[in-house]
Design a protein around this nucleic acid. Sequence first.
DNA 1: CGCCGGACATAACATATTTAAATGCCAGCC
DNA 2: GGCTGGCATTTAAATATGTTATGTCCGGCG
Lengths: 238, 238
Amino acid sequence: MSNSGYARFASFASFERRDLESFDVLTGPLRVVPKGGFLCHEGQPSSELYRLKSGWLCCSISTQDGARQITKIHLPGDLVGTPSMATDVSVETVSALTWAEVEVIPLEAFGRTFRDHPRLAALLFLWSQEERVRLMHQMTLIGRHAADRRVAAFLLSIYQRVLLSTPDVGLSFELPLIQQDIADATGMSIVHANRSLRKLRDAGLLTFQDGRVTIGNLAGLREFSGTPTLSPRSTSWI
Amino acid sequence: MSNSGYARFASFASFERRDLESFDVLTGPLRVVPKGGFLCHEGQPSSELYRLKSGWLCCSISTQDGARQITKIHLPGDLVGTPSMATDVSVETVSALTWAEVEVIPLEAFGRTFRDHPRLAALLFLWSQEERVRLMHQMTLIGRHAADRRVAAFLLSIYQRVLLSTPDVGLSFELPLIQQDIADATGMSIVHANRSLRKLRDAGLLTFQDGRVTIGNLAGLREFSGTPTLSPRSTSWI
DNA sequence: CGCCGGACATAACATATTTAAATGCCAGCC
DNA sequence: GGCTGGCATTTAAATATGTTATGTCCGGCG
């Protein structure tokens, strides 16, 4: 078995175990990032991708007036940094929410691997579509839902991804974010994020305290968040 | 020259002419869609992609409470429908803003083409990253910018794409949207979209009337919209 | 012609959300 | 021990945005 020793389930929700193992050829030298450290800064050149081995990362885009939009929270197993492959300089800032280990994949090495493994290429393309779906859903969330629903759906979506790598996590998990992060991910002020969290707590749906999410009512939370569950398509056409 | 007879510049901003022509192997039987017609509905099975030959398409996601988020406006040349490749059923509804012609590409045909043309596969993967960047930027726009700026940046982004296929379009172009569409794309109510358009008009930045955008002050509009211009990365690593 | 519906425009009001500010808590540190 | 800074929490006031309602224009259609 090609067990790579770390979870590969956070991204790649659409894939079966057989296909998941294909991604393990994407590897490279290890790099350690301290909590609060950065892998790259938007606007600065960068020619490498990352595979997250352990810890949590956060991707964000800043605006001219100092605001920040978190575009993705990364869990172990995730492939990080691909959007900037299309552009001159990094389009996002990648920072470490915790002490983290990544495998560094230079762009040329990625290109080589991509060419040498046709099926991997197809799987990576498919994964990109999965990521686009995620982005479209988060966009819909931010654009067309009320604040407390945004917070609920955001936390629930992370829970679903945690479940992929840790099916027995139960109804409580550590999430190394602060309220400002939740605000930046869901497009609201920190004060309103606090209000929304309070509402969710008062409603018994979930609590977020000391970097830990505890779900009080999973079914209720799912219904309140209003996010449909999607099933992956069979990859037989590849 | 493999001139396909229609613009291929709306998507694929990152590519040079040489690479652009690679995409022309993605082809299939023609289908005509009347104005207001649909190519697919979210939640319903669909196993085909589309290449837009002429006309305008609109991709959107609906929420349970009847709201709608427009995720992308498509111009001729665009590859449409790929996000749903990752899922069981369509994740988005694709409708025709005008009478439109598309080439229909079945999923299996796409898979075959993908396998048979390694370089095309890499280019399509890169294109997916470009699309992710677009989504991340639109998400940042909706989440962290004021309403009038959202409208300005949205219309400007379409203008930039129109410019790719029609460099000599000048400062005015037809855009087959109604104000409700602008509201649904930028995440606000139609009343507020109207208010924002009025502000932009009063500021002399642009007007939107009778399905036509006229830019009054391009430099001012760019500055006001606050969206940075990105340069594509060289594709030499492919 | 008169009627109708869709799109646009605007006003008045209601609500959601932001901003600013103050407080409490707590861990790190001198 | 007392200070400091980061984070959470809450309040109040200011502002942005949503909702509802109404009028107008205009093109299609009987």
